[in-house]
């Protein structure tokens, strides 16, 4: 930093003082950019290239590996765990996106009007976003325990106990519920920002015409925040597809009984880490994760562009 401060800048000043032709030396922008480009290049772009390259080899953690063509990808197609992981990650998107598009919008409408104490409620609803996913996971593991609070309440209401953390399907559903619970506040704030752009008069005019609350919601609010809904759908879809921590914590490292709840990213983590890690195979799985999220991500960019206009 000291170098950057004195060397290029000093000379630029001498020149700049005279004719004001060049605002800076040609090298100084690159000095400003160097740390960022180095980190991003070295720890995002290079690993990406190396992931693609490794996916065509049989590399392991401790051995370099030989070129094996598409063998990893072929193996994947015959690996039942891959299909389980793909199924669960896809189900996660389907299960999590609709509630995360609708519920935070309703929440945003609820906290939109500034009634006394509303700042407190907004902050409180954001709390699950602030907490680490590990803490959130452990809180719900305890709540959903066989002898935990929720089963106790179910018992009081006369229902039987549910094996939230032992039945593979209930486990996946529980993990989805936790993801939704943790994400509500985050998307609520995004909707809140969008709602400030909706003109009040529109609502009032509609109310004068005698439209009920539900009707006004559907005819005024929803069209006005439509592009935000697309954005939220895309963002939550991308995040849901890459789910790891919730399932890892609630179902265990191997993804529940018989690995029935494993997700794609859990497979990457299982295959690629440790001393015997199959880096080649894990890389091929990573490439699949990348390609499938990219499709969802392009949707995000589109939604963003729609927002700007």
């Amino acid at each position: 930093m000291g170098m950057r401060k004195s060397a290029p800048g000093g000379r630029a000043r001498e020149r700049g003082g005279g004719t004001a032709i060049r605002p800076h030396l040609p090298t100084s922008p690159w000095l400003f950019l160097a740390p960022g480009l180095l980190v991003v290049g070295g720890f995002s772009l290079y690993p990406f290239v190396s992931t693609v390259a490794h996916s065509f080899t049989d590399a392991r953690t401790l051995t370099v590996g030989q070129f094996t063509g598409g063998a990893n990808y072929q193996e994947m197609l015959h690996d039942p765990m891959f299909w389980t992981g793909l199924r669960n990650s896809a189900l996660y998107v389907l299960g999590v996106v609709p509630p995360l598009v609708v519920l935070p919008l309703l929440l945003a409408l609820l906290v939109r009007r500034s009634v006394p104490g509303i700042a407190f409620f907004r902050a409180a609803f954001y709390l699950p976003v602030v907490a680490s996913v590990v803490v959130v996971g452990l809180i719900w593991v305890w709540l959903l325990d066989d002898r935990g609070l929720i089963n106790a309440l179910l018992g009081v209401l006369g229902f039987g106990r549910a094996g939230f953390l032992s039945d593979p399907w209930l486990l996946l559903l529980s993990a989805m519920a936790v993801t939704v619970w943790k994400g509500l506040g985050y998307y609520m704030i995004i909707y809140l920002a969008a709602l400030t752009q909706v003109p009040r008069e529109l609502h009032e005019a509609c109310a004068v015409d005698g439209a009920g609350a539900v009707r006004r919601f559907l005819t005024v609010t929803v069209p006005a925040v439509r592009s935000t809904m697309v954005l939220v759908a895309a963002l939550s879809a991308v995040n849901a597809f890459k789910v790891f921590s919730e399932v890892y914590l609630m179902a265990g490292a191997t993804g529940g009984p018989g690995g029935e709840d494993t997700t794609l990213v859990m497979l990457v983590q299982q295959a690629g880490t440790g001393l015997g890690g199959r880096v080649g195979y894990a890389s091929a799985l990573s490439v699949v994760v990348f390609v499938l999220t990219l499709g969802l991500m392009l949707l995000v960019l589109r939604a963003n562009r729609g927002e700007d206009r």
Binding site: T61, S283, V287, V289
Partner: peptide, 15 residues
Amino acid sequence: MLVPVESIMIAQFMT
């Protein structure tokens, strides 16, 4: 920004 961390973490670990 478009590269998801989850898809490069094994390579990052190797690095």
